[in-house]
């Protein structure tokens, strides 16, 4: 199944395999910025890819600054990365809107968080430490997708996924 994503910055394609990778519960780190162009990072349980939008499950106790930035300008970037292989994809978006998660999203986010914990255990983090990784206070951040980029380390990192 192919997803044509509309956006002014990029027209990109998220195919079945890529969608599956993005939604399989890898580690997710987020970037936002404030009005003075000072960046911030946040962490998320993962993403759900919709037709031309994404819903990201951002951890809010550690993400106050990121949430303020999103309310200010709605610009967002997120990298989804598989710890064992470093395969990574960067999503870029705009017009981000913060909202409560619905019941289905809560169930999905819990599964994604559990899978992310498993991913770091595979690279040597102690299971009891991985279990304490906090994904308990999540909010949904829904944004318009403007670009999808390969972020796996290497000379091609940053290339747009076409």
């Amino acid at each position: 199944m192919l997803y044509h994503v509309s956006g002014t910055r990029a027209r990109c394609l998220i195919d079945g395999e890529l969608k599956q990778f993005l939604e399989s519960g890898h580690v997710c780190v987020v970037a936002t910025r404030d009005a003075g162009l000072r960046p911030d990072w946040g962490h998320a349980a993962g993403v759900r890819v919709l037709k031309d939008r994404c819903v990201l499950f951002l951890e809010s106790t550690t993400g106050a600054r990121s949430l303020n930035n999103l309310r200010d300008n709605g610009m967002i970037a997120a990298v989804i990365s598989e710890p064992a292989t470093h395969r990574s994809i960067q999503l870029k978006g705009r017009n981000a809107r913060i909202r409560e998660m619905n019941a289905a999203e809560k169930r999905l986010a819990a599964r994604l968080a559990q899978s992310a914990r498993q991913g770091v255990i595979e690279v040597g983090i102690a299971p009891r430490v991985a279990a304490s990784w906090n994904f308990e206070t999540l909010v949904a951040v829904e944004f318009e997708l403007t670009g999808v980029f390969d972020a796996t380390p290497g000379p091609k990192a940053g290339a747009e996924v076409k």
Binding site: R33, A78, H86, Q90, I125, A151, P153
Partner: peptide, 21 residues
Amino acid sequence: VVPAAIATCDAAGVPNVAYVS
């Protein structure tokens, strides 16, 4: 031991995040 990450932003205000070894 654990990869770090760096959040940046270009002059137009588009953020970016990358892992750093």
